[in-house]
Amino acid sequence: MSDSGDSDITWTFYKDRPEWSDVTPVPENDGPKPVVVIAHSEKFEDVYDYFRAILQTNEKSERALHLTKDAVDLNPANYTVWQYRRDLLQALGTDLRSELDYVEAVIKQSPKNYQVWHHRRVLVEWLQDSDLELELTRDALLQDPKNYHAWQHRQWVIKTFGLFEKEMEFVDNLITEDVRNNSAWNQRYFVMNNHLGWSDINVQKEIRYTLEKINFVKNNESAWNYLRGVLLHDAKGLSGNTEVTSFCEELYSNKCRSPYLLAFLIDICDEAIKKGEINSLYNAEKALNLCQALATKYDKIRSKYWNFIAEKFRKYQSN
């Protein structure tokens, strides 16, 4: 796409193009006195002087469409250029399929830019065709598995066009690739919540899956958070699922001291106390010991938080 890049020696300034000789360029207006002087390259100034000119005269032409391409190339974050380009596409009846190809190329250059992804979404809405979107976002996520814009676009497409079918497979692959990828775990929840549903069988299946992943990498915030999320849908709560509690106990007795494990055990205690399970192993004393271990040894940076939680359990004890 960068046939107009700064390094390209064949570049001709708009002011030197005969087909633009009828247009008077409009330099940037900073108001009465410039607040800040913006330093731009000569090329940037040239392109944007002509862009402002067509904007002023509201010119709807092929050459204007081409000009917006050069303007985007120099600054893909300029939302006014994109908006004008969409006005042009509509006015000229341009083939939107080729526009999809074009914006895909821009996304590959600037994958973290609001405007490009929004442009893509509008095109998909206009065409009512989502055929290319899963592949496009997959490619973007291969580059950067945590790209927020790509995930947002993917969720929108999946929800709008009902493309849930193969999404769990996609999520599985990402988690296998990087078990700490929080975005992938979030997407897993998205698929469960919006598509597969939280039937008891599904809940137990998800619990087993997550425990397996925790067993693989124990100190993984994302997996532990997901486990809590799944257990929100378990009628037995956080403390009532014996598969989960024995898993935690086993980790603990195997000397695992991940702060996430200890924090989880504390929450099991909290729930057991609130349920009034007096004879439970999960009591205030156990929670206090865990809080102390976290505050003084395993999660010192959050010691103030653990001391606060300990205070809560001391109140339980004295009641």
């Binding site: 947002q152 979030n186 919006n194 809590r228 929100l232």
Partner: peptide
């Protein structure tokens, strides 16, 4: 609001 107590940009978007 998400299952981890955080918030994202739209319903279902990752906490940030």
């Amino acid at each position: 609001m998400n299952f981890d107590g955080g918030f994202g940009s739209r319903p279902g978007s990752e906490s940030h």
